[in-house]
Amino acid sequence: MRVLFASTTGAGHFHPLVPLIDACTARGDDVLVVAPPGLGAALAAREQPYRIGARPPDDELTRVMTRVMTRVLELPPDDGVSLMTREVFGRLCVTAMLPTLEAACREWRPDLVVHEAYEFASVVAAEHQGIPHARVAVSAAGFARSTDTLLRPVLGPYGPGIVERLRDSPYLTRLPASLDPSPYALTHRYHETPEPDALPDWWGGAEEPLVHLTLGTEAGALPTAGGLYRAVLEAVGGLPVRALLTAGHGTVDPYS
């Protein structure tokens, strides 16, 4: 079986694909990964073949991201989400990556396209070539579903019904139903079996409930990150729990 995996830039978008890429490789599938230049070094360090597409023009991306940051800091969060989904993921990233993904689907002829939830150029390319596609969660299912309707103005010109078929495609997630009920009809849940004692004992043998705190891999680079992380840490500081905070590489020190 030939499986093409597609991702946008960012650890939080690529890493959910990794266990599926590894599983396909282990069972002998032919795998091709397609991603923007920002993931070039990460893909070069892996064993799978890959192709690198383009990134959006810097001036356009900067202009949109400036608007997004303004909305995040000054207006309701939904406005920033709308801009990111529609303008960055739906318009700029699709325009930049589509030529590479169209060529990969046409020339390599995968049997299946698997993409992270906010990579849409591969969906357009798969639809144009009649290739089935599946979506891998990078967030809560309810959040992803709430942003689907934002895509109609930007994906509609590529073909009728693309957004509807994106919504109806298989949705793969590692989150359990108890934490993340899914509105997607074709939801499939998967998990990795951790190695014994994979998590170091940072708590000196304590057995209190373990609370995992995360704001994702990108929030830590926002101008408001310091105060946000302080508030999160102080909220759990007095609770009888073990707390594990995970963050992206660019996260600022909340107490600096």
Results as ranks from 00 to 15, higher is better:
M1H: 13
R2N: 12
R2H: 09
R2Y: 06
F5L: 06
F5T: 02
A6F: 02
H15C: 07
L17D: 05
P19N: 07
L20F: 01
I21Y: 02
I21G: 00
A23L: 06
C24N: 12
T25L: 15
T25W: 09
T25E: 15
T25N: 07
A26T: 10
D29T: 03
D29G: 00
L32C: 10
V33M: 10
V34W: 05
V34H: 06
A35K: 10
P36T: 01
G40D: 15
G40T: 12
A41P: 03
L43H: 11
L43F: 07
A44L: 10
Y50T: 03
Y50V: 00
P57M: 07
P57A: 09
D58S: 12
E60D: 08
R63H: 10
V64S: 05
V64A: 06
T70G: 14
L73P: 11
L73D: 09
E74N: 13
L75I: 07
P76V: 14
P77G: 11
G80M: 13
V81Y: 13
L83D: 15
M84I: 15
T85H: 01
T85E: 15
E87R: 11
V94M: 03
T95N: 14
L101N: 07
E102L: 15
A103I: 07
R106P: 02
E107R: 10
W108E: 05
V114H: 04
H115F: 11
E116K: 11
Y118F: 15
A121V: 06
V123Q: 00
I131M: 03
H133R: 11
A137Y: 01
V138A: 12
S139I: 10
F143K: 00
F143P: 01
A144V: 03
R145Y: 13
S146M: 11
T147G: 04
D148K: 00
P153F: 12
G159V: 03
V163L: 00
L166S: 10
Y171S: 04
L172I: 05
T173F: 07
R174N: 07
P176K: 09
S178N: 08
L179V: 05
D180A: 01
P181G: 00
S182T: 08
S182L: 02
P183F: 11
P183K: 07
P183S: 08
Y184V: 02
Y184N: 01
Y184A: 01
A185K: 15
A185I: 06
E192W: 00
D197Q: 13
D197Y: 11
A198Y: 02
W203V: 08
G204R: 14
P209E: 03
V211T: 13
T214G: 01
G216I: 04
T217K: 09
E218S: 14
G220N: 11
A221P: 09
L222N: 10
A225C: 13
R230N: 08
R230F: 08
V232C: 14
L233A: 10
E234V: 06
E234I: 03
A235G: 05
A235V: 02
G238R: 12
G238M: 01
P240N: 08
R242M: 09
L244D: 04
L245Q: 08
T246F: 07
A247R: 09
G250Y: 13
T251K: 04
V252K: 14
D253C: 00
Y255Q: 00
